[in-house]
Amino acid sequence: MRRVVLCGWVLVVCCGCAGPGGGDEGRAPGAPTGVTARAGSATSVHVMWNAVPAAGGYEVYRGSTKVAEAPASARMLDVTRLAPATTYVFTVRARDGEGRLGPRSREARATTPAAVAADRTAPTRPGGATGRAVGGRAVQLSWSASTDDREVVSYDVYQGGVKIHGVGGEQTATVVTGLRPGTRYSFTVRARDAADNLSPASAPVRLTTASGAGAAGGTAPTGFRATTRQADGAYYIDLAWVPPRLDGVVTEYQIQLDGQPATSLVWGGAPPRGEASYSFYVGREAGAGHRVRLRARLPDGTWGAYSAERAVTTGSRR
């Protein structure tokens, strides 16, 4: 397998790559992608990351110090006992079942707000909580902003009685991924201030994810386009698409050409917020027809649904 950096993309070219369960024995897991950090209060930071396939667990570092471990099923962790008004740098490492540690993720920075003396007043309860299922593995939630005598710093999202996510105090919507198709869930939201006072829980939002063939539909890239062009006697396919709207960061895509996996793309810097694009070589023959589509690796480490398939012919822009 070769890795080539092209215009922000890391192109992974598989030449006889082993399938699942083959060729990876004895190899440490890769670095977690999509690592983010946001202050949860004056003394805590909420760290999130994308799942690493086959990881047996994760280690979270503050600077060079390991501050916590998380199980393989986790994609988030609250780092507590921090100092107010301080900037911290966090990284995450994946560990396999044999204890081998992978490389560190990219750094994520967060600054805790200043402490508020003698604040015992909790924010008001988030109102108007609602949501909808997005395919079989995600739901979109929204709520009305809470108020506080000082400031709402963050919102905690709960599945049942377990906190599964956190967003900044300026947000009143989020998408929860990593769910199971055809499953009923109950979510609530609580507001938090800098002094770690928690509001009462919102009204529960009960949703059922899609099942069957359409279960992953909401995870597909949209607006997918494909055209061909010629340069220096060779033909290329130019792709453009809109990433699926999910909580967490989509950093990897797989392109399927003529019904077979062709390349995997790993975003080498900050992923695009809007339309993404990529171009790849398909040969020197004019009039060759191809079918192309792509899918995203979701923040929970699974693959989402494929985009619509497009047919192109070299030498033609249609």
Rank of each mutant, 00 (worst) to 15 (best):
D96P: 00
E69P: 06
A28C: 06
A28K: 05
G259S: 02
R310K: 12
L257G: 02
A54T: 15
R104Q: 15
A288S: 09
V139Y: 00
R104C: 09
T219W: 03
R27C: 11
D193Q: 08
G212V: 09
G217Q: 14
L11M: 12
M1D: 13
T130N: 06
Y185N: 09
V312N: 00
T183Q: 11
A231K: 12
P20M: 05
Y253D: 01
R109H: 12
S73V: 13
V282A: 01
R125I: 03
G289S: 11
R104F: 11
A231G: 08
R81Y: 15
T314Q: 04
G169L: 06
V67C: 11
G301N: 04
D148F: 02
W9Y: 06
A83K: 14
A110I: 04
G56I: 09
R245W: 06
S211G: 15
S202Y: 09
A72N: 03
T314K: 03
G135C: 00
V52S: 04
R104D: 14
C7V: 14
Q159G: 12
L265M: 03
A191E: 09
V249F: 00
P103R: 02
P29Y: 00
V5K: 09
E170L: 14
G131W: 00
G131V: 02
D149Q: 07
Y236C: 05
V67L: 11
R2L: 13
G136R: 03
L198N: 11
G16A: 09
V52K: 02
Y185I: 11
N197T: 12
A55N: 06
A296C: 07
A194D: 10
G178N: 08
T209F: 03
T183E: 12
A191P: 10
R206C: 13
P126A: 05
V89K: 14
A262R: 08
Q256D: 15
A226F: 02
W241G: 01
A31R: 06
W9D: 04
L11H: 09
E151V: 13
A18S: 14
Y236P: 05
G248W: 02
A108E: 07
M1V: 15
G182P: 09
S64N: 15
Y88H: 10
T33D: 13
T209H: 04
D232Q: 12
A194S: 12
S186I: 12
G315H: 02
V153G: 01
D96S: 01
R75H: 14
T227P: 03
Q256R: 08
A51I: 07
G259Y: 00
V13A: 10
